[in-house]
Design a protein around this nucleic acid. Structure first.
Lengths: 222, 222
DNA sequence: GCTAGCCTGTCATCGAACTGAAAGGTAAAC
DNA sequence: GTTTACCTTTCAGTTCGATGACAGGCTAGC
């Protein structure tokens, strides 16, 4: 199993390379987007892990290039802060999945495994938890097969909680994930309001949103 | 195997034509970018070899045109200089590969072979969904065998929705796919208008266009 | 070269849905 | 028991999308 890592932060890059090699992968690493394209041109990687921000060519561009050229490589994007527009752009450009920094390394490996198992190009994998099923590509959530009608913000929040499960997600992360201007919701009680509405829609879903006083929120399987 | 060569330098053009014919290809040659577009319009080439700089229309433009019109032709660009910006521009425009002059002829043939192996040129696949059937090559749509009368723009939009099914397609992607100047439709509500008209033509088609508020549109099988 | 028809994009309007502020209530922490 | 953090509901403002009407432009047919 061959993996390409494109990440300009040297520390993180080395952690990734080491960790993935320990997990039994054959890993190549570059620190620039254009180098990533060059590598993708000459080797058929199973998975490419691309940083969003890189010198040369940004990760999105690399993903978009790979998709255009029908490279057989599944793409996992790493994003530092992720605003909705960023994320959508990434998935549209051809990324198959993405991870928000900071992430748990085990989580990364799990997703890499998921990617290599999956036929390529079908879009981001569906997130399941309890009776809930969130499809990032369709941007819809079903509860035991029945369509749940969530607003955009609610969906983003739920998505974040599911992706970070079972960790606690703090308000700052929620603000960054679900709002364009992440400073805005922090001064008000909007997040609480959204949580309330989201909870109301999640009754009998096999999943519950718990409050961790002073820290944030986390998902729990009921 | 049919190849189009677009190269204004007569010496190089003749070398290419001769060499490719010897390699067993059916070769057409032109010396202007606009002529290249004309050829691409009427024949389904497997591969087009385009010089970057040409009288009439530059190679990038030709590539971009081909991409925009979903020609089933893989594109190989010939560039004199090889700077990252050039490369990116070329690849962005829709080139599938590029070669820097001067190049080895064997290298060229190898790349042409690689391009024609790709799934893309293997006949224009008809898109089916519900009772709908869209033939990209003939640019027409039938509903249960009956011809649907769609305008050009409507067809482009429907095609994109079908290709991306079941994912959400954002307005930016629609704009890029269906308009030459993709900035134009974004400031207005043209997309909404087209959607409305398209929907009207798709009643009882077994397919529906759903709005995903704030994100875009997606197709759903009814 | 004129005319009819179709296509396009703009505008105005309508309606629905989403949003965030506020206010008052509740639970946890100390 | 007081304080602080969080929860819920209500409400009004705003945004977003749908649609019908219109004018300009292009094309085909005569």
């Amino acid at each position: 199993m061959r993996i390409l890592v494109a990440e300009d932060d040297r520390g993180l890059r080395e952690v990734l390379v080491q960790g993935l090699e320990d997990a039994g992968y054959l890993v190549d690493a570059v620190d620039r987007g254009d180098d990533a394209i060059e590598q993708l041109k000459f080797y058929e990687y199973d998975v490419a892990i691309l940083d969003w921000r890189m010198p040369g060519v940004p990760g999105v561009e690399v993903a978009s290039w790979a998709r255009r050229n029908d490279r057989p490589t599944a793409i996992l994007m790493l994003t530092a802060r992720d605003t909705p527009p960023d994320r959508i752009q990434g998935l549209d450009a051809g990324a198959d999945d993405y991870l928000v920094k900071p992430f748990d390394f085990g989580e990364l490996v799990a997703r890499v495994r998921a990617l290599q198992r999956r036929p390529r190009g079908v879009g981001a994998p569906v997130l399941n938890r309890g009776g809930l099923s969130l499809d990032p590509a369709r941007r819809q959530v079903t509860l035991n097969g029945k369509l749940l009608n969530l607003t955009t913000a609610e969906l983003y929040i739920l998505e974040l909680l599911m992706r970070r499960f079972p960790s606690v997600v703090d308000r700052k992360a929620i603000a960054e994930h679900a709002w364009r201007d992440e400073t805005e919701p922090l001064g008000s009680n909007v997040i609480d309001v959204k949580m309330s509405r989201l909870r109301a829609k999640l009754v009998n879903s096999g999943v519950r949103i718990l409050t961790v006083r002073g820290s944030g929120f986390r998902l729990e399987e009921a």
